[in-house]
Simulated assay, not measured.
Amino acid sequence: MPRESYQERLEELREDVLYMSEVVLERFRVGLDALEQKDEELAWEVIEGDDEINQMYLELEQDCVDLLALQQPVAGDLRFIAASFKIITDLERVADLATNLGEYTLTADRDMFPEVDIQGIADHTLEMIEDAMAGYRDEDTDACYQIAERDDEIDERCEDASEAVVRDLIEREVGDGADETEIEQLMNDVSRLLLTIRDLERVGDHAVNIAARTLYMVENDDELIY
């Protein structure tokens, strides 16, 4: 393969990874909208769209394998391909978390715990993914460190939100004659919300993973990899 064509394939890989991130983030936003609006049509859109993301992942995985096998890259090119492969894995897992939101929507029928700012936490985590991908695109190592620092805030907000849900559940008065169905629905609502908070925290973790791989790609520095 001529050198020019090889470099073009590397750049195409970068563009394709960035495109995958855009699709994944849009699916996650739709999943959040579905959950907030209790919209089953949107929920199914996210759930059924997961196959498309999986196919995109497999195609990019094959591109990485072909570049490694056919070109035997070294130094910076090798790190770029390896980092890209790890990043698409994180993006595919974020897409799986979006599918979770769709599935939660199918069992949600009422709003609970309005004091828990799910949308605010979600906006922050999705912004972290966007910024991590911008760091990958621009090879911006400063952005990588900033992503890692911001994850501490996400962890704290998620912990506070989970504690608020549990505290509210403990303090909620349920009479001895409470309907069994109502109690079961309450517990389902609590479980759904705690799972949503957990998934948002994981999105933040994937943003850190992306930043860590970018830092390794650019500077051969594994400081953020854990």
Results as ranks from 00 to 15, higher is better:
I147E: 00
I147T: 03
A148R: 02
E149R: 10
E149V: 07
R150M: 01
R150W: 01
R150A: 01
D151N: 10
D151W: 01
D151C: 07
D152V: 08
E153Q: 10
E153A: 07
E153P: 00
I154N: 00
D155G: 07
D155L: 06
E156M: 12
E156I: 11
R157T: 01
E159L: 06
E159R: 11
E159H: 12
D160M: 06
A161G: 06
E163H: 13
E163Q: 15
E163M: 15
A164W: 03
V166Q: 03
V166M: 11
R167E: 04
D168R: 02
D168Q: 10
D168N: 08
L169R: 05
L169K: 06
I170G: 04
I170Y: 07
I170T: 10
I170P: 05
I170W: 06
E171Q: 15
E171M: 15
E171R: 15
R172V: 10
R172L: 15
R172S: 15
E173R: 12
E173F: 12
G175C: 02
G175D: 07
G175N: 04
G175Q: 03
G175I: 03
D176S: 12
D176W: 06
D176A: 11
D176I: 06
G177P: 05
G177K: 08
A178W: 13
A178F: 09
A178R: 12
D179L: 10
D179R: 11
D179G: 09
D179H: 13
E180P: 03
E180K: 09
E180H: 10
T181E: 14
T181N: 05
T181F: 08
E182P: 01
E182Y: 07
I183P: 02
I183V: 13
I183F: 10
